[in-house]
Design a protein around this nucleic acid. Structure first.
Length: 170
DNA sequence: GCCAACGTTGGC
DNA sequence: GCCAACGTTGGC
């Protein structure tokens, strides 16, 4: 799906990025130097194009834990660099190795993500139950994109839910 | 481990 | 360029 990029005013500035916590959890990201990790392993063209064409340094990121016992939003982060080739595509020992990609013509990109803080886990079920998030991209059925834009109103609703201890599940 | 959904591949 | 087969994602 094309993203409107014609004017800076309409460029998405909020994103949700999925990470498998047994690969890189919010704690892992916070423990990294400068709390910054290279976002390796994106192997989907749409997600790559978001990084390449739309995401900019300073954009806000919901750090989402996926493929784990407790999927949901686990922290807040920011885009910390522009894109560069993802070195794992050239590494035969990496699970992200892509034999069809050549260093002189890299197929896959990454950017740096800086973790800002850990939040309480805003579980997937809680996201689904929130009326303001009904249209949220990541909640649409069978969404497999690892990077999705987040609407400003959705961002606000999520931050409000994160800040509201009454809505926290013990 | 199951399986629905969807992206990618490759034969034609 | 079609489309069936295949692989992957990711919640459950």
């Amino acid at each position: 799906m094309p993203t409107p990029l014609a004017t800076a005013h309409h460029r998405p500035q909020y994103w949700l990025m999925k990470s498998e916590p047994n690969e890189c959890s919010i704690d892992d990201a916070l423990a990294a130097p400068d709390a910054t990790v290279p976002w390796t392993g994106v192997r989907n063209y749409q997600a790559r194009n978001f990084m390449r064409d739309a995401m900019q340094v300073g954009d806000s990121v919901l750090f989402y834990h996926s493929s784990c016992p407790q999927p949901g939003i686990a922290g807040i982060a920011r885009v910390a660099s522009g894109t560069r080739p993802d070195p794992t595509q050239f590494d035969p020992a990496s699970p992200y190795f892509d034999p069809r990609s050549a260093p002189e013509k890299p197929r896959w990109l990454l950017l740096d993500v800086q973790a800002l803080r850990k939040t309480r886990l805003l579980a997937l079920a809680e996201l689904r139950a929130h009326p303001a998030l009904a249209q949220m991209r990541v909640l649409q059925r069978a969404n497999r994109l690892s990077i999705t834009p987040v609407e400003p109103a959705e961002w606000d609703a999520i931050l409000a839910a994160l800040a509201d201890p009454a809505s926290a599940v013990a």
